[in-house]
Design a protein around this nucleic acid. Structure first.
Lengths: 257, 257
DNA sequence: CCGCGAATTTCCGCTGCGTGCAACGTGCTT
DNA sequence: AAGCACGTTGCACGCAGCGGAAATTCGCGG
């Protein structure tokens, strides 16, 4: 669909403007097969064929054939009771994607320390273009807790993690860790700090999330040092220099008082 | 491709023999796109286009077009340095697959208890046809530990988990938990017990894995009761009757002695 | 600096693959 | 019993996808 500019398009032009990730140039059958996978919602274990076809905007016949191919490779499975569900191969590839980032050896223990010491949920976000994505999460053991899923995306710039990821670029850099109270999500409070890698780049942000009503002075006094401590430790574990993070750390209460 | 048998094939024959999940009847473009995803090995963060095409047995032109479609949906990403890597969408779908099983709310805490009390790795397997698959895993904090990945498959009938999953079908049912020493993997010891759901079916197996040299009498005395305790607790948490598991439990040492 | 080869990407014509229609069985509700 | 929704199969048509050729860049060595 991209019209040729004035100059006749010579084959093999390398400076193709990749700015247009249009829907054309795509392989239709693959487009449709992936749409079938994405037709499964968040909390839907199984869907009948007709529903999947309707959501993807495909004829049942087409959906049936594509699902057959997906099933053959383990990307979906047919349930004995009828209907389709996502397949185990997605788990394998999802884990491989995470492994490619080579972060979890250090991030997971840090998250579990945060959760165990604060009794609240802990999460680690990475920047992804103009957004952020939750890569790892460890849920609070308490019955009332925030809910979020690994893999989910959220905007940059808002929310504690959203601001922590860009904290070092802000002109008056904020004190660390960043604290949010009902900022992006009503009734949710969060504490987050950036983590640096060996090149000094922001590798991600680590923090604690909890219901806002539970975030009183005692919780604040407990959680802020925890998050800062883990952000510094994680930065060091990744081979980075924790100085930029530690320098912006809030005074510990006993010193500031 | 399948030749019509002697009888004229009337459209709409319902008694189709589904026994042949052959490679035909599949949508070729989708087959190839999925082959590209599976071309990424276990520890390969990034691959150049030529490698991917070669592994999938495709011409580079074809691979380029298919990868473009996959990238458009977030199933692969182009790295700034050149080359392709698996994409974040796989993480989202992998999590959705697990969520469809609705197990992790109870399984994850049990695994973390096992890991924290034994200081060894804990894992949960489910049966999948004639094999088993590792659904969840929590790694030991020790520097020398067994390595395995969530999503990996292993055979039934061998290894502690492989035997635990079929323990209740065996004629002389084995004592629980099942113990293996270098059985499937040299140098690896494992302790596992089955977990039942509310229908009395085997929902999976839970257990501990460790280097064989560390599995001495003290470790055995510590880990066996732990595994049995969590298998019973998890069965109860899923609404199942733990009696079949508890009845096969080994006598606790002080009683048996 | 220049030339060679490998890697990547665009264009294009042919053909075989994928699509959707029609038909049919099944199971459930009216 | 009739009606309806769902799942499945076969088939012919049309275009979508395939692969070759060519253009371009990059890396390497002379």
């Amino acid at each position: 669909m991209r019209k040729p500019e004035t100059t006749a398009r010579r084959p093999g032009r390398p400076a193709a403007p990749r700015l247009a990730p249009d829907t054309d140039g795509n392989v239709r059958a693959v487009d449709r097969a992936l749409a079938l996978l994405l037709a499964f919602g968040d909390n839907e274990a199984a869907l009948p064929l007709a529903d999947i076809a309707r959501r993807a905007g495909l004829h049942m016949t087409t959906a049936l054939r594509l699902l057959g191919t997906l099933e053959h490779h383990g990307f979906v499975r047919r349930l004995p009771a009828g209907g389709y569900a996502l397949g185990p191969q997605l788990l394998v590839l999802g884990e491989r994607f995470r492994r490619g980032l080579r972060l979890e050896d250090h991030v997971l223990p840090a998250l579990e320390r945060l959760r165990d010491e604060s009794h609240e949920s802990a999460a680690f976000f990475v920047r992804e273009g103009a957004a952020r994505r939750c890569l790892f999460r460890r849920d609070s053991p308490q019955p009332v807790r925030t809910v979020a899923q690994e893999g989910a995306v959220a905007p940059l710039g808002i929310g504690a993690h959203g601001r922590a990821l860009v904290a070092l670029e802000a002109d008056p850099p904020p004190r660390l860790p960043v604290v949010s109270r009902g900022e992006r999500l009503k009734e949710v409070a969060a504490i987050a700090a950036p983590v640096l890698d060996s090149r000094g780049e922001v590798a991600g942000s680590i923090g604690i999330t909890m219901p806002l009503y539970r975030f009183d002075a005692a919780a604040e006094a407990l959680c802020l040092p925890l998050v800062l401590r883990e952000a510094v430790a994680l930065t060091r574990a990744l081979g980075g220099d924790p100085a930029p993070v530690a320098m912006l750390g809030r005074q510990s209460p006993e010193i500031a008082a």
